[in-house]
């Protein structure tokens, strides 16, 4: 048994070591990102040169210009934002309800359902685009943002449900009993007590669904066929992947532009992730 003070003594150098390694790892992890941004600023001939310098003496905005010059780039950006945000909100709500159902209730087919949810993720997405294509056509959703939002909701739900299940489970049953004893209605408990408690889980799942909707190529190129005004940002990136003559500067610049909103989104929501439940689940 160690005394309280010895714990403190051990802690401080430990923490400094931990923080130093966290920063070091951050640098290593960020290096490829730095290289991406750097390549976006390098002039065309310098991106792949025999002297790979981690800086450039002649930064140029040419690559970014080629990105922004594309027709309707602003429109693509907005479309991507609409798709990603709709997917995040709708799938969070649906998944929260479903996760509550599978955690707080026992019923037949519960486990089967949970596993069935995952099944669709186990096959290559290319294999599903043809059936989904006909489905979207029959719903009249082809060439609209709906044809992107709907499948993305469906593909982010399974993970969100499984994930939130863990968080709902962590909220003690006693809390629920207490709420009912206090005369809270079912929906009051659900939305005003349970919902805030699982918020960190919602944040983690929404980062996931935001990124997968934001970066998707496949649905965008399969379902937005004839109306380029409904296209999304990844299409603006693909322009630079031309067979035989790829424009790496453009690729890097477009990717940089695409990555920034995700980071902004994360900075906006990360406080929720960090503050989380805190002491809310005492007892």
């Amino acid at each position: 048994m160690r005394s309280l003070s010895s714990v403190r003594l051990v802690r401080r150098p430990w923490r400094l070591f931990a923080e130093a390694s966290a920063l070091l790892i951050a640098v290593v992890v960020a290096f490829p990102l730095y290289w991406m941004v750097l390549s976006a600023f390098k002039p065309a001939g310098e991106i792949e040169s025999s002297e790979p310098r981690p800086w450039t003496l002649a930064p140029s905005l040419d690559s970014f210009r080629r990105v922004f010059e594309q027709n309707e780039f602003g429109r693509y950006f907005l479309n991507s934002l609409v798709v990603a945000c709709s997917v995040v909100i709708v799938s969070a709500l649906i998944a929260f309800l479903a996760a509550t159902a599978v955690t707080r209730f026992r019923f037949r087919f519960r486990t089967t359902l949970l596993i069935m949810f995952l099944v669709a993720q186990m096959v290559p997405v290319e294999a599903l685009t043809i059936p989904l294509f006909f489905l979207m056509r029959d719903f009249g959703q082809l060439n609209t943002l709906g044809s992107l939002i709907l499948p993305h909701i469906a593909f982010s739900l399974p993970f969100a449900i499984w994930m939130l299940r863990g968080f709902v489970k962590a909220v003690p049953e006693a809390l629920e009993e207490a709420a009912y004893m206090d005369g809270a209605s079912r929906s009051r408990f659900l939305w005003q007590i349970l919902f805030p408690l699982v918020f960190p889980g919602l944040v983690a799942t929404s980062v996931f669904s935001f990124i997968s909707a934001w970066n998707d190529f496949l649905f965008a190129k399969s379902f937005i066929i004839s109306d380029t005004s409904q296209s999304t940002l990844p299409m603006a990136l693909l322009v630079f992947y031309k067979p035989d003559e790829p424009d790496w500067g453009g690729v890097m610049a477009a990717s940089t532009v695409m990555t920034i909103p995700v980071l902004v989104f994360f900075v906006l929501v990360q406080r929720r992730l960090v503050s989380g439940l805190g002491g809310a689940v005492k007892d």
């Binding site: 966290a22 920063l23 790892i25 951050a26 640098v27 992890v29 960020a30 290096f31 490829p32 990102l33 290289w35 991406m36 390549s39 991106i47 792949e48 980062v207 990124i211 934001w214 970066n215 190529f217 990844p234 990136l237 992947y241 790496w248 690729v251 890097m252 990717s255 695409m258 990555t259 995700v262 980071l263 994360f266 900075v267 990360q270």
Partner: peptide, 24 residues
């Protein structure tokens, strides 16, 4: 710092991430 670096890695489109690693 670590979170943002990690998020950046996560948010980078896979096709770009692979290209950059190949460059490196």
């Amino acid at each position: 710092a670590l979170m943002l670096a990690a998020l950046g890695a996560w948010a980078t489109p896979a096709i770009t991430g692979s290209t950059v690693w190949l460059f490196l």
